[in-house]
Simulated assay, not measured.
Amino acid sequence: MSTAHRIHDDHGAVSLEVILIAPAVLIVLALTMGFARVGQANMNVDSAAYAAARAASISRTPGEASGSAREAAQDVLTQKGLDCPADIAVDTSAFNSAPGESGAITVTVTCPVPLGDLAVPGLPGTRTVTGEGSSVLDRYRGRQ
Rank of each mutant, 00 (worst) to 15 (best):
M1N: 11
T3S: 13
R6H: 10
H8N: 14
G12H: 05
G12W: 02
A13L: 12
L20H: 06
I21F: 10
I21T: 15
L26R: 01
L29T: 10
M33V: 09
M33W: 05
F35G: 14
A36D: 06
A36M: 11
A41M: 06
N42K: 13
V45Y: 10
Y50S: 10
A52Q: 02
A52L: 02
A56L: 02
S57F: 04
I58D: 05
T61K: 04
T61N: 10
A65S: 06
A69V: 06
Q74H: 11
D75L: 14
T78A: 14
T78F: 09
Q79A: 13
G81C: 03
D83Q: 12
A86I: 04
I88N: 05
T92N: 04
A94L: 00
N96M: 08
S97A: 12
P99A: 02
S102Q: 09
G103I: 00
A104S: 15
C111S: 07
P112Q: 06
V113L: 03
P114C: 04
L115G: 05
D117W: 08
A119N: 15
A119T: 14
L123D: 01
R127C: 08
G131C: 08
E132M: 15
S135F: 00
V136W: 07
R143G: 12
R143M: 08
Q144C: 13
